[in-house]
């Protein structure tokens, strides 16, 4: 925040037109869709954390009364609010615990992807030359990979566990971030204040961390938020294909995978976990989009 004092006199010189620009948070809070998204995220996180207290059942407990006499799953009813699955397990409980899987993968995989993308994009954009060219050609190469096919192959190579799935998604998903940050860094690196820092004798590490990175924080936040949505969808897809998170660990994708053969008779087994995936992906998309509008000055006033 030490920068603010430096810019204050400049701002005083500018003609005052309209109200003072408010903080990012205040502007974000004015957007209903962003609030809606944030609310949904908070609800999902709360559901995942409080799962043991929200439901009387265990996610892997196969209950005798959870099946009809002929062994069919129960539709939503008073005891099992969202019905039961093919093994007589409570669907709501599995969805609540499945939220943990989605959130852990969403945060971890996306976090790793952001770190890889930032390191590659920023260093390639700052150093340019041979090093930058090699990194960016590698990024181009990764973009030519059919991402889902690559993820499927990787998931098939390593025996899928929660952490392996997170790694696989990270390996596939860092590319976009790297490209965006590369472009921003190349234009930043040519600005006067970077040249001034160099003249003053600052080392590369200091320039990158103290001067380039802070300028990229808004972009990183936006891509980080939108990326969680992509990650959640990719995890669900891999688990749906049976090569993501493995049962009995509940994941929204593998709940559908386990029950899809039965979906004509028991559509709730696809509908509710599907709705959960949609809600989580939607909420991060809404929040990320609003953040982009709020954080990116060139987008201001377009809506």
């Amino acid at each position: 925040m030490s920068d603010t004092s430096g810019t204050q006199p400049v701002r005083a010189l500018l003609p005052v037109t309209g109200p003072r620009p408010k903080g990012v948070w205040a502007r974000l809070m004015r957007r209903k869709l962003a609030l809606f998204g944030l609310g949904l995220i908070v609800a999902v996180v709360a559901g995942a954390i409080l799962a043991p207290w929200l439901t009387p059942y265990d996610p892997n407990e196969q209950r005798f009364e959870g099946l009809t006499l002929t062994g069919a799953p129960l539709p939503p009813n008073a005891d099992f609010l969202l019905g039961t699955d093919l093994l007589g397990r409570d669907l709501l409980t599995r969805i609540l615990y499945g939220a943990r899987t989605s959130l852990i993968i969403g945060v971890v995989a996306n976090g790793i992807a952001l770190v890889i993308g930032t390191v590659i994009g920023v260093t390639a954009g700052y150093f340019r030359g041979f090093y930058g060219a090699v990194l960016m050609r590698f990024t181009d190469l990764m973009m030519a990979f059919p991402a889902l096919l690559l993820a499927i192959c990787l998931a098939a190579i390593f025996q899928p566990s929660l952490w392996i799935v997170a790694m696989v998604i990270a390996i596939v998903n860092w590319v976009q971030t790297a490209r965006v940050l590369y472009t921003e860094t190349t234009s930043l690196a040519e600005r006067e204040f970077i040249a001034a820092e160099k003249t003053l004798g600052a080392g590369h590490a200091r320039i990158l961390i103290r001067h380039i990175l802070p300028h990229l924080v808004p972009t990183i936040i936006v891509w980080g938020t939108l990326g969680i949505s992509t990650t959640v969808l990719l995890e669900a897809t891999l688990s749906f294909l049976g090569i993501g998170v493995q049962p009995p660990t509940p994941s929204w994708g593998n709940i559908i995978f386990e029950n899809q053969t039965y979906f004509q008779a028991a559509p709730w087994l696809v509908f509710f976990p599907g709705a959960a995936i949609l809600i989580l992906a939607l909420s991060f998309n809404l929040l990320g989009d609003a953040l982009r509008d709020v954080l990116d000055p060139t987008q201001r006033g377009r809506d």
């Binding site: 869709l33 949505s229 969808l233 669900a236 897809t237 749906f240 994708g253 559908i256 899809q260 979906f263 004509q264 559509p267 696809v270 509908f271 599907g274 995936i277 949609l278 992906a281 939607l282 998309n285 809404l286 989009d289």
Partner: peptide
């Protein structure tokens, strides 16, 4: 625009299974 966000956030296998259920089954 909310509808467009829903479209972007919907997992394809769920959309496919739901469309199958409603329009085919």
């Amino acid at each position: 625009m909310i509808a467009s966000f829903v479209g972007v956030s919907a997992p394809q296998f769920v959309v496919g299974l739901l469309l199958l259920y409603v329009f085919a089954v």
